[in-house]
Design a binder for these strands. Structure first.
Length: 679
DNA sequence: TAATGGGGGTTTTTT
DNA sequence: ACCCCCATTA
């Protein structure tokens, strides 16, 4: 019998043992969602379902690993490893690799991550000569976001532009042309972006013959975080279950926070429309948070106009809990110092740093705090935000991996060629032009490619030719060579380029070693590249591996990245209107409600201690001494505030005023005077 | 043609 | 503060 850490309650047990029929579990935060899902997988295996005939779709690979790890811990056998699972995108990737022929995809197709897709969008825009006039076009990342939204929500472009980019909505025709060219180019180059993975998977799943095969591969499909699926993902799931009712959907409409990606909680709430005969089980007993924290969460939920499905009740009293605190700070600087002080205070009371998290709405909100933590030598890891920003070198090697399987990948060529000294966009373009044969296509096989590569090398500056030729030669896989050896050869070939192109080359070269090691189990280098894009290092500094395994570190995270996690103590910073809720989201009612759910997710991460920090004012960095007053977050309504203890601004502490940096500009005396003028 | 600097407009969250 | 575009310089 399955033995979780804690016995299942009646509802959880009912869900875990539910028969082979469509099941929906609405599970509020901390109600044992993962435990229940784990137990259900275990029960299915006990019933004799073969592990490889169970598909477990989770939002992150981490969640899949956690569930399978827990099943394995109780079963003690390794066959659990054969349970299929991962994110929708990674599952799509596997399916497309296996069935690329039927879908008309090249065998070694490449996968573009978001930044790659934006670069390709920019390239195509340049070629089309769509330039900025007085009504400027959105920047490349916004253009790809527009494209993604149109694709994932099946909404007309003009409407999406009206909502997202109203200043240039009248240029929708040009943007439509651009998107058409973008799609065509991806096809020519043998490249798929993240959206394409889902779109092709849907094509496959909805195909009469292929779809039947794909669906028949699984006895049971279980989906976690169902409130965050979008239309395309829903279609895939419906298609895979068109003749088989065995599906389990787990989710919580109160935690729907991916609307910007086309997700819609209605797909969870209206699931009976897509899965006939659906039974619903609701979990409300919360095993995570103290009653005081649940009171704050429920007060926030009560403010939601449409309400949340879940009302949380404390299942077991949490010992040593404190009333959640609303901490007013003078400014960002004060907020940094206060958070750090309180983190250390809790640490001294026995709450390890790893059991504490600082959460924020936007990745850049932690910038000042990161400096303060570094100054006080407090170790931390940060989750969320643009992780590849400082990992350009990783993408360089991945580009080389992609090229070995797909020489038509012009994006990869451009990227690598521009690493050569003296080679910029124009030279790179000419070099790629030299690769094309008479039909204007880049040959797809290495035999045909060899003479073209020689032509390419001839276009490059003399002093780079040696390095370039070594690199180009490394693309060809030697006979009897293992994948790892080939990957290592590519790493060696690319190393001088990395050294020439980046300041801190030594650390970067070490990262690449770890990447080569990841090729051990793979069957293709393009697979490794795709999987790295789909599951990038979760935190800054993750690439080099955990540098200090037995040490303790504080967790800094965006709320989005903290989803599914829990901490003894949670510090939510920048709980000021405009930051949380983000002013970008205030344009629409749905936007505001999503921010409210995000706030709810943040609060419900906490077990014992919760603190919300509100800076009273923000300095403008443009003009010295200029600042504006901040309003506390509108989510701190009277109802919510009645569940919180108000902590007023503390007296300025001269000990803490640092000798240099922004704080010195604004001495404690000035703050005190301005503050007293307030009242 | 690559690299650099100034001016102006946008600024979020992730697979 | 960042990114994008354009103009200038080497």
């Amino acid at each position: 019998m399955f033995a979780p850490a804690r016995e299942l309650n009646a509802r959880q047990r009912e869900a875990a043992n539910f028969p082979d029929a469509p099941l929906r579990v609405i599970a509020g935060p901390g109600t044992g969602k993962t435990t229940t899902l784990t137990a259900r997988v275990h029960v299915l295996l006990e019933r004799g379902v073969a592990p490889e005939r169970i598909l477990l779709l989770t939002f992150t690979r981490r969640a899949a690993r956690e569930i399978l790890g827990r099943v394995r811990a109780s079963r003690g056998t390794d066959d659990v490893r054969r349970v299929a699972g991962g994110t929708f995108h990674s599952q799509a990737h596997h399916t497309l690799r296996r069935h690329h022929d039927a879908l008309g995809l090249p065998e070694g197709f490449g996968v573009l991550d978001q930044a790659d897709a934006a670069d390709l969008m920019d390239l195509v825009r340049g070629e089309l000569g769509i330039v900025s006039r007085d009504k400027r076009l959105p920047k490349k990342s916004t253009l790809t976001a527009l494209y993604s939204r149109v694709v994932n929500t099946a909404t007309p472009l003009a409407q999406v532009m009206g909502e997202m980019t109203p200043w240039c909505a009248e240029r929708a025709d040009e943007v439509a042309t651009l998107f058409g060219a973008f799609v065509a180019r991806k096809r020519t180059l043998g490249l798929l972006d993240f959206d394409d993975l889902l779109l092709y998977w849907r094509e496959a799943a909805e195909d009469a013959a292929l779809g039947a095969t794909l669906g028949a591969a699984y006895d049971h499909i279980l989906v976690d975080e169902f409130q965050d699926v979008n239309r395309v993902q829903l279609d895939v799931l419906v298609a895979l279950r068109r003749s088989d009712p065995r599906v389990t959907l787990v989710g919580d409409d109160a935690q729907a926070i991916y609307g910007f990606r086309g997700a819609c909680a209605r797909y969870l709430l209206d699931a009976h429309a897509h899965f006939a005969g659906l039974t619903t089980i609701t979990l409300e007993l919360n095993y995570r948070s103290s009653a005081a924290i649940l009171a704050a969460a429920n007060a926030l939920a009560a403010d939601a106009p449409e309400g949340f499905s879940s009302h949380l009740r404390e299942a077991v009293p949490v010992r040593g809990a404190r009333t959640p605190q609303l901490i007013h700070c003078r400014d960002e600087r004060d907020q940094c110092e206060t958070v750090t002080d309180r983190v250390l205070e809790l640490y001294e009371q026995g709450v390890a740093l790893q059991r504490q998290a600082v959460l924020f709405r936007a990745a850049h909100h932690s910038g000042e705090l990161e400096i303060e933590l570094a100054r006080r030598r407090i170790p931390f890891v940060k989750y969320g935000g643009l992780r590849y920003l400082e990992a350009a070198h990783v993408k360089d090697l991945l580009a080389a991996f992609r090229l070995t399987d797909n020489p038509r990948d012009e994006m990869a060529w451009f990227r690598l060629l521009q690493l050569l000294p003296g080679v910029g966009p124009a030279t790179a373009r000419a070099a790629v032009g030299a690769l094309r044969d008479l039909d204007g296509r880049i040959p797809a096989t290495h035999d045909e490619l060899a003479p073209r590569i020689a032509a390419l090398a001839a276009t490059l500056p003399d002093e780079t030719r040696d390095v370039a030729e070594t690199l180009l030669a490394a693309f060809v896989r030697h006979r009897h060579e293992t994948l790892s050896v080939h990957a290592e050869r590519l790493r060696v070939a690319i190393s001088p380029l990395i050294q020439g192109a980046y300041e801190d080359a030594t650390a970067r070269l070490e990262d690449l070693g770890a990447l080569v090691a990841a090729c051990d189990q793979a069957t293709r280098l393009s697979d490794v590249a795709a999987e790295q894009s789909l599951e990038p290092p979760a935190s800054t500094g993750d690439l080099a591996g955990p540098p200090m395994v037995d040490e303790d570190w504080l967790v800094l995270s965006t709320v989005h990245s903290a989803k599914g996690l829990e901490f003894d103590a949670v510090h939510i910073i920048h709980a000021a209107d405009g930051n949380f809720p983000a002013d970008m989201a205030l344009g629409s009612l749905e936007g505001l409600e999503e921010e409210r759910r995000l706030f709810y997710v943040a609060i419900t991460r906490a077990r014992r201690d919760l603190a919300l920090y509100v800076p009273l004012r923000y300095h403008h960095h443009r003009v010295r001494d200029d600042h504006s007053w901040a309003q506390p977050s509108r989510f701190l309504s009277d109802g919510v505030r009645s569940t919180l203890a108000d902590i007023p601004v503390s007296a300025p502490n001269p000990r803490e005023s640092s000798p240099s940096g922004p704080a010195a500009i604004d001495g404690a005396g000035v703050v005190a005077r301005r503050l007293s003028e307030l009242w």
